[in-house]
């Protein structure tokens, strides 16, 4: 039987040193057994490598930055949909999720499916709200506090011990070992991502990650835990290995069933010296290393698309343990005309 062909738009094509998940997600989609795909890339910057990888992305359109607002984004998506007839959109950046969630119903009415967290899930898991989140769902989180001015840093020494982690609302995190550093990171990060700044107690230990997919009804459709083996100076995994830790899987099931999480996610965990897992962050989307999950038997991008278009999906329960991913850099040779096309016309 001929597989049906879906037109799927994917963002996060920045397969660079601090990569977006787009290219890895697309690899999963291209290997899907239940459908064929035409891939539409959605890009923000004209040098996102995915734009030029023609065996990965069939056609790319630039879209406006999230700070232009949902209305502007919608106008652009209408234009793209008119030409491409999109079935599904998979947004992969934290900062753009808000706009896509806001447009979810409008897109649905246009015939475009998404599978995103609800606004409540999205807000609740936000760094700023992590302490309440931990309390509500009985999940251990490091002590943290949102602050609005450098003046507040001085009073932090009552509640915190150095080192502390200074985090931006959307991205960026730096470890501060003294007040001066804390102040300087506050200024740097707030200039870029606005207020508040989240100050989090630094937890000594080993970092673990787990990626998964929730169906929105409390069922865990997929869950693959991984330990980073090599971390770049930007804190990104360069290599990692799947592991077999029942406590991590249990924690994931608890997270999904309690929050009724809908969509892909990544949990960043720290195993402290007390041998307990602390939840550092919940990323409301698939991580850049998602292809590892595909490679060990859980095609999360495929399952997510099937959920988005309303297909029945059987949960994955197994995966190969002890499989590794090693990320590598690859220089493409690109004609300037291609750069020219995407730069001036916003399409390639």
């Amino acid at each position: 039987m001929k597989k049906r062909k879906l037109c799927i738009a994917v963002s996060g094509l920045n397969a660079i040193d601090s990569p977006g998940p787009g290219v890895a997600v697309i690899r999963g989609l291209r290997e899907a057994e239940s459908f064929d795909v035409r891939i539409i890339g959605l890009s923000y910057e004209s040098l996102e490598p995915g734009i030029y990888m023609h065996d990965v992305v069939d056609k790319t359109y630039q879209i406006p930055y999230p700070n232009a607002g949902a209305e502007t984004l919608l106008a652009r998506l209408e234009y793209i949909h008119d030409i491409e007839k999109l079935d599904v959109i998979i947004p992969n950046f934290d900062a753009e999720l808000y706009s896509f969630m806001k447009l979810e119903d409008t897109l649905k009415a246009m015939g475009i499916n998404t599978f995103l967290p609800t606004m409540m899930q999205f807000e609740e898991r936000h760094k700023v709200n992590l302490p309440e989140f931990g309390k509500k769902y009985d999940i251990k989180v490091p002590f943290s506090k949102s602050i609005f001015s450098t003046g507040e840093i001085y009073s932090l020494s009552n509640d915190f011990e150095f080192p502390m982690v200074i985090k931006g609302k959307y991205y960026d995190a730096s470890i501060a070992y003294n007040l001066e550093q804390a102040k300087s990171y506050f200024n740097k990060i707030s200039a870029k991502w606005g207020l508040p700044i989240v100050v989090q107690q630094f937890v000594h230990g080993t970092e673990y990650n787990i990626t998964g997919l929730g169906d929105g009804k409390g069922n865990t459709i997929a869950a693959v835990p991984m330990r980073k083996q090599y971390i770049t100076d930007k804190g990104k995994a360069w290599g990692g290995i799947t592991i077999d830790d029942k406590r991590m899987i249990d924690l994931t099931h608890k997270f999904v069933s309690q929050t009724k999480w809908r969509g892909g996610f990544e949990l960043e965990l720290m195993k402290g010296q007390d041998n307990e897992f602390y939840l550092l962050e919940i990323n409301p989307r698939m991580p850049a290393w998602i292809y590892l999950a595909v490679g060990v038997g859980q095609n999360i991008p495929e399952a997510m698309v099937n959920l988005a278009i309303g297909e029945e999906v059987i949960p994955y329960t197994d995966y190969e343990k002890g499989k590794m991913f090693i990320r590598y850099a690859w220089d493409m040779i690109v004609d300037i005309n291609e750069f020219h096309e995407i730069s001036t016309k916003g399409e390639l």
């Binding site: 930055y65 652009r76 234009y79 730069s343």
Partner: peptide, 9 residues
């Protein structure tokens, strides 16, 4: 990103 080509700003 450059704004040329995006008509909706």
């Amino acid at each position: 990103p450059n704004k040329f080509g995006l008509r909706t700003e």
